[in-house]
Design a protein around this nucleic acid. Sequence first.
RNA 1: GCGUGGAUAGUUCAACGGCUAGAAUUCUGGCCUUCCAAGCCAGCGAUCCGGGUUCGAAUCCCGGUCCGCGCACCA
Length: 497
Amino acid sequence: MDKLDKINSITLSRGFFYPSAEIYKASSGFWTYGHLGTRIKHKWENIWRKSFLGLSPRYFEIDDCVIMPKKVFESSGHLEHFNDPLTECRKCHQRYRADQLVENATNKNAEDMTIEELDKAIEKNKIKCPKCKDDLSKIKIFNMMFPINVGATETNVMYLRPESAQSPYLAYKREFEAMRRKLPFGLATIGKVFRNEISPRQGFFRLREIVQAELQIFFDPKEITKCDNWDKIKSEKIRILKVGEKKIKDYTCAELLKQKIPKFYLYHMVRVQKFYVEDLQIPKQKFRFRELSEKERAFYNKIHFDMELDVDTLGGWKEFGGLHYRGDYDLTCHQKGSKQKMESVRIDGSRFIPHILELSFGVDRNVWALVDIFFKEGERDYIAFPLGIAPFDVAVFPLVNKKGLPEKAMEIFDSLRKEFNAFYDESGSVGRRYRRQDEVGTNFGVTIDFDTLEKGVVTIRDRDSMKQIRVDEGELVEVLRNLLGGLKFSKAGELVK
RNA sequence: GCGUGGAUAGUUCAACGGCUAGAAUUCUGGCCUUCCAAGCCAGCGAUCCGGGUUCGAAUCCCGGUCCGCGCACCA
């Protein structure tokens, strides 16, 4: 079994994630978070909140509807750009993007052409199926957004949002007032978004129902060159793969500033890297930013680096988030579409539409990455989740199932579960129970034996080293608190940093 | 969507058209057991769905669903 098979086997059989509605073999691209997966997801989300809402006392979270009016997506451009004009060969049924065929045939930009114009262009230029040279069908629009009929009539078409970013943009005007018209401020949101992928692949990586975590920061464009903590971060190194380069290099913020990346953007690059490397404790060599070329970038993104992780089971470096400087594109669109003013006024009376820096993360694939990156293969396969990420902090076992040990163990379990994510197990031998917990990444085991009854001492066992220490029952909570706070066992059995 | 391979227990696999669909592991109960998947006994548990061919189908055929891979798609 290779690593992917092992992880699939564990995530299915232990209840991390599995296909949604699997008893009906429903549809690909939809997954259920099981009882263990849900915990990891919540923990990832909470660490994310702590990291990014913690950046400023003026960053807050909102929680919006996933069904939104058509006009939102007319304004945002999604109805136009989330559409693919597809044409199909009448003989071999191969499908093509009509605009790409027209561009190839005419060497003209077909991006802004309407369906009718594209149909005409295909006819006029006698474009045939590139494969079998047969005729092509009339163009059909494939929309990546899921339409929803709201109410009893079919006239009120709404859409499931294809990205969560729209929510903060729509909330901007009211929140701006609520925040007493002061910039910058940030609106974060964690929630479901929906994309009707033609054929989602790669298991948990490309989904139709997705969880995104995003922070949208609204600011005066003049502030892009400013950073309060510049002295602290200017010598911080950021791991980047630049366009045209083959090797990842470390760049200091000061170097990047010379390359015309503004301070405000750099500050957030530093924070994002710290989120992965320090908060989630992902090994540094498995994280990088990747600079996107002009071609890859959406037209409204002035600066765009993706966050990438090196994940074996996904075949290497993949995108896990993006840091986008979107300029005033979004609020300008919504100002036009809604006829509501999004402008802000400076003290000197000059007016501007706030700019947006977007920190965007795909939660599902990040959760998968945690399982992959911390999975350890060897004589003993286990998941070395960092403290605070594993589904359970601690598991409690009676050494054997007799003479009052299970009762005592249950009593200790009850006292621990008030403060920790704790699990109780008395089935099978104690070794088997350790292994079961190793497999799902539980950080510590607490074993109750006859010394617990006679002398009041329990054993704590560390997942990674398999070392054990004995502590007084009365100190157990305090010791676990310290261990989960990052202290470690020393050789002498003392706790050290 | 096209092409291609596949779908058997919680998991990983086996079974030429023919005995009661077999194993490993997991899991459950019991015995034993003072610390790393030990042992012994017992038990639960499966042919994706719908048709067809046949005396007889997990196996062959048709349709559907889902999954893997390649192409395409992934503003």
